[in-house]
Design a binder for these strands. Structure first.
Lengths: 299, 299
DNA sequence: CGACGCAATACCCAAAAGGTATGCCAGCGA
DNA sequence: TCGCTGGCATACCTTTTGGGTATTGCGTCG
């Protein structure tokens, strides 16, 4: 049996006249007669009774009509869904983010993507950098967000934005009286840094920036994550640094201050994905990321 | 697109190797390659990525595989259901019965039919003889049960059983002391008869039987239905007659007695249906009716 | 670097779908 | 009652297309 048989039978059942149905199908009457006969023979069931004025459906014919319409609509739906999947408009996208990535630009991009691709189910997995790479290789995720990365042969690494760093000080700290501060202040105060976990990471980036400015900072503590770090500053344990997006973290007793003398005091937000992944959904998401990057001019 | 494409794609998706899939489909590899290419082209979507060791599904391919399996099972189900409908094993049967037909052999036949055709939905409509004929002509029912019928050109009338009649008397009546009675007793007692409604009916049948025995009964009342008639007897209003199947009607103060001298004191139970109705479900039901008739030897 | 495995291509044949002409039958009007 | 009409079925031809065989092309892996 064939989808053609279904189409033809539906036409005949709706017209109740083989000739008219043939007209509607843009074929001539004899082949249609033959196809219907074939269908009946294949099913071993009489679907039509031939009357002097046309045809009528038997009960089996009624049953088959219902099923045929059902199948036809399912086929149309299947084609539609597959096309949409092929365009990256339907399906599932698994993304790896790092612990506090949720404070960065990531939510904005997720939002943009969901608006333009409402039928793609986005599943976010919190994982470390190494876990992301492992998950990419096993195809458990298609995309990961991260900050500090060494190049890998099979993984593409695409910069999204360079975020300027902000100083975080206690509201009672003398530096809080300035609107903006000098990066050199970092040499004079004990630093709380983060995260613990796979190196190189944010700690190394800060050390590198300080080295560029010609000093080595005093590190009082290295804590697990940005929230803990800022909480310690709120509690009076020194100062710290965060990417601009983390300044949305509104803890009482803490103020954020930009640097007036260090354009290079930035931290990258990047995404990583398999070099060999051509999936339409990933490409669609990369499109959103690139649009986002254009819009933010690299920072 | 064609059901063949679905079958082929499912095979390829399951084998992840076009050559092996071709083997499984009992065709050679090149036509299968071509069919899959055709399918991809028609959908405008890449379903497979060709690797050195075979093929892999794209996300769109995964989507299409799911849909294709879905469609295939629906098609199989459609064929199965249509075949069963063609054999009268699936569908709906509308039956007309008369008011108290539910007391006769009808429930037994319905039961037999339901046991052998569990997926046919039997819908019973209570209607008079004339309503049944009208409903048959309009195809609102496929079969009617009735007792007294004149032949009609378009309606077949098939006898099911001849039921012997039973005398119904009050438990205090002198006749109740006999195990069986003579039909001639009817000449000596006022008769309650039924039903009111389209003639000829049960009343005429009783009159005919009496005439055959050479007397005219005294009719005290004609009431709507058998239950009312028996209830009147229970209340002391004369005697009546019922078909054997109605003796299941167990009213207090009433006894049923057979006739020892009248083999012909019977009433027919018949069924009626359109002479032109070849529907498998009706034929199946008629089969049950005929089996029932054989089993009961005509009475 | 050559052998192997697999998909793709080229080309042919056969099956089957579609077309035209015609037959056959029932109902209907002159 | 006898054509005439409308409808499905049949016969036969043409064209499309599915399937087969042979071969090529392209990675990968000893």
């Amino acid at each position: 049996m064939d989808l053609r048989h279904l189409k033809y039978f539906i036409a005949v059942a709706e017209e109740l006249n083989i000739g008219r149905a043939a007209l509607r199908l843009h074929i001539s009457q004899p082949p249609l007669t033959r196809q219907i006969q074939q269908l009946e023979e294949e099913l071993g069931v009489q679907l039509l009774v031939r009357t002097p004025r046309g045809v009528e459906l038997t009960q089996a014919g009624e049953m088959f009509l219902e099923e045929a319409r059902n199948i036809r609509s399912l086929v149309e739906q299947a084609i539609e869904r597959t096309k949409r999947a092929g365009q990256g408009k339907l399906g599932r996208l698994d993304i790896g983010i790092f612990g506090t990535g949720i404070l960065s630009a990531i939510p904005q991009m997720l939002h943009l993507f969901r608006d333009t691709h409402p039928d793609v189910r986005v599943v976010v997995h919190t994982m470390t950098k190494d876990e992301q790479i492992e998950a990419l290789r096993q195809r458990r995720i298609a995309l990961g967000f991260n900050r500090i990365l060494s190049p890998l042969p099979d993984i593409e690494n695409e910069l999204i934005i360079k975020e300027p760093l902000f100083l975080v000080v206690n509201a009672n700290h003398p530096l809080s009286r300035q609107e903006s501060v000098s990066f050199m202040e970092l040499a004079k105060h004990p630093l709380v840094l983060f995260p613990t976990g796979a190196r190189p990471n944010f700690v190394d980036r800060v050390m590198e920036l300080c080295a560029n400015m010609g000093f080595t900072p005093e590190i009082s503590q290295i804590v697990g994550d940005v929230v803990t770090g800022v909480a310690l500053v709120a509690g009076g344990f020194g100062i710290t640094l965060v990417p601009r997006s983390a300044t949305t973290l509104n803890l009482p007793g803490v103020v954020y201050r930009p640097f007036f003398d260090s354009l290079s005091a930035t931290i990258d937000l990047s995404c990583i994905y398999r070099k060999d992944d051509q999936s339409a959904i990933l490409q669609a998401f990369l499109g959103v990321i690139r649009a986002f990057r254009e819009q933010h001019g690299g920072q």
